[in-house]
Every structure is written in structure tokens, then in C-alpha cells.
Design a protein around this nucleic acid. Structure first.
Ligand SMILES: [Mn+2]
Ligand SMILES: [Mn+2]
Ligand SMILES: [Zn+2]
Ligand SMILES: [Zn+2]
Lengths: 144, 144
DNA sequence: ATCCTAAAACGAAATCATTTCTATTTAGAG
DNA sequence: CTCTAAATAGAAATGATTTCGTTTTAGGAT
């Protein structure tokens, strides 16, 4: 039914299992990021059996293949979210309500070039994430 | 004797205990990042008693107060390093040898402005880190 | 449509880096 | 020198995440 997700999975070289599709649907409907356990609690009734390790494994694999994104959270727990924007970009994440907003550009090319020029290093990946309070949460904060 | 570190601690509102100073000296002498346990193993003989929780606690407090920096590592373990550059900047970290290199500029002001303009959100912190292989490790990689 | 097999999922148990807790020690202000 | 809030000890707990041996399944091949 959600051919889009099945296609994305196939493109990533992963089988389109019902559980993977359910995880993607649930995260797509979610405005913010979610933890493995939260997703598991909300999904397990839809299946005869659904193990928490399965959710962990799939979230990690989906993140690894770029279908999902991972949050670097100060509390060091894992959180994932769905973003359909296929361009390279980053995110602002609200630490209060968990909303995620796109940040279209990062000057990574210049920084990568800088690193390789200066010391011959090779940049394999980069993290750019803004943490804060979204508009709504910042307002609530003020009223307190 | 290392008045610099004692001063830095005082400036951060922290007592200049021998253990904190030893942690700072050890990390300053280190070219890259280190884990709490590694530091503990290398420091505990210098003291009658030194608990691993003390190392964890101090590293976190020192990182919290900006005296040390923390690495966001793919393996999700904690690593810290010392950087004396007091300007706002970020780092390239080598995933192989753990070397850390400065990245002088990040376009954070523009991004912060973008976030607050678009949705009224408030940016509280940001992460920018490049992961990769430093010059030396990239060379070794090629020879294999 | 059925077979076949590598991939996926199960789930109980283990892991182990990190944190907590209470008692004891200490830095440093007064 | 005294005093006290801050720092440390260290054993124990924690709990999110991972492992592992077994069972099930998706999807290409027949
Ligand atoms: Mn996005
Ligand atoms: Mn630096
Ligand atoms: Zn980027
Ligand atoms: Zn910055």
C-alpha cells in the first residue's frame, strides 16, 4: 500500500517487511523524533509478535541506509525521525516537544576542503545539529 | 604548579583539586581524545585512591563548564579532549587514531538566525563535528 | 503457484558503560 | 585554624542496547 516506503526500502537493498513499513509509517506521521521503546509500545499491538530488539535493529539499519535520521540527544539515548527531503541538509530539534525542522544548508564543502587541504585528512561524515526550543515551546517558556 | 589549569577551574567555579588538575594535565598532553576508563587507568597509580566514578563525574563537569570538550562518537561511548583555543570553534576527529584538529569557523550565526526567523525557535546549543581519517591514517589506509 | 534460502525477527538473557548512593575526605573561604 | 559545602570513594545498581541460538518470512527462482 505505501508503495513509496516499499520502494525506498528496495532502493536501500532492504526487504520490505510489514514491520519495517509500519515503523516508517509511524515515524512519517510523527511531527518529531521518537525513541525505539516508544515506537515499540505503539506498534506491538498491530502484530502478533514484535520484539523490542527488532525495532532497535530496524531503526539502526534504516538510519544507516539513510531512510531515517538519528538525533544526537544530550541524554545519550537513541531517537529517530523521518524526513522525506532527499537533499543533503540538517535539523533543528526541539528538546522540549521533539519537533524537527529542516536546516537547508551547511557549509560542509568548505570545511571538508579546509580539512583535506590543511592535513590531508579525509572527511567521512559530519554532524550538524541545532538544539533548542521551537517557536511554541519558547513561547510557553516565557509565560512561566 | 599548573597555575593555568587551577585558574581555569576557578574561573569555572570549580575547586582546583589534585585529581582535576591531573585529568587536565593528562588530556592536555594527549594529542587526541580519551575515554574515562583510559584516563582512570593511567591516573590511578598517581593517587592513593581514585575511583572511576570520580573520573566520569569530573570529565562531565569539566565538559559542562567548557574546560574540556566532548566527542560525539559513532560507538556512543564518551570521549573527551582538551583544547585551549577559547574562540568558538569545532573539530575534526580522526576515528582511527583519535587525533583532533580545529575547524575555525562554523556558519552558526546564519543558521541560528534562520531558525528564529522562520519559526521563532530559540537555539540553545549546536553540534558540528567532522568525522574521518586524519592525514596519517588516510595514508595508511591507502597502502593496505 | 510452490520452493528455497538468505534475510529478518524472536525474545530471553547478557552486556557493560555509566550512574547512583551513603559515608568519608578535603579545598579553600573566613 | 575552623568550618562547611564540595568533592571523592567504592560497592552496587541501572537500564538502554546488544547478543545469540532458534524460528519465521520475503521474494527471487523454478
Ligand atoms: Mn529534514
Ligand atoms: Mn580546538
Ligand atoms: Zn551537511
Ligand atoms: Zn559553532
Amino acid at each position: 500500500m505505501d508503495q513509496r516506503h516499499a520502494t525506498a526500502l528496495k532502493a536501500a537493498g532492504m526487504k520490505a517487511t510489514p514491520k519495517r513499513l509500519a515503523i516508517l509509517e509511524m515515524l512519517e506521521a510523527e511531527p518529531g523524533y521518537a525513541s525505539p521503546e516508544e515506537l515499540w509500545k505503539r506498534l506491538k499491538d498491530r502484530f502478533d509478535r514484535l520484539g523490542l530488539p527488532t525495532v532497535y535493529r530496524n531503526l539502526e539499519e534504516l538510519s544507516e541506509s539513510g531512510v531515517l535520521s538519528k538525533v544526537i540527544h544530550p541524554n545519550r539515548q537513541l531517537y529517530y525521525y523521518f524526513c522525506s527531503n532527499r537533499e543533503h541538509h540538517h535539523h533543528f530539534v526541539c528538546l522540549s516537544c521533539r519537533k524537527v525542522e529542516d536546516i537547508p544548508s551547511c557549509g560542509i564543502e568548505a570545511l571538508e576542503h579546509e580539512v583535506s587541504k590543511r592535513n590531508g585528512g579525509k572527511v567521512l561524515s559530519h554532524i550538524l545539529q541545532l538544539n533548542g526550543l521551537c517557536g511554541g515551546c519558547a513561547d510557553n517558556e516565557e509565560k512561566r
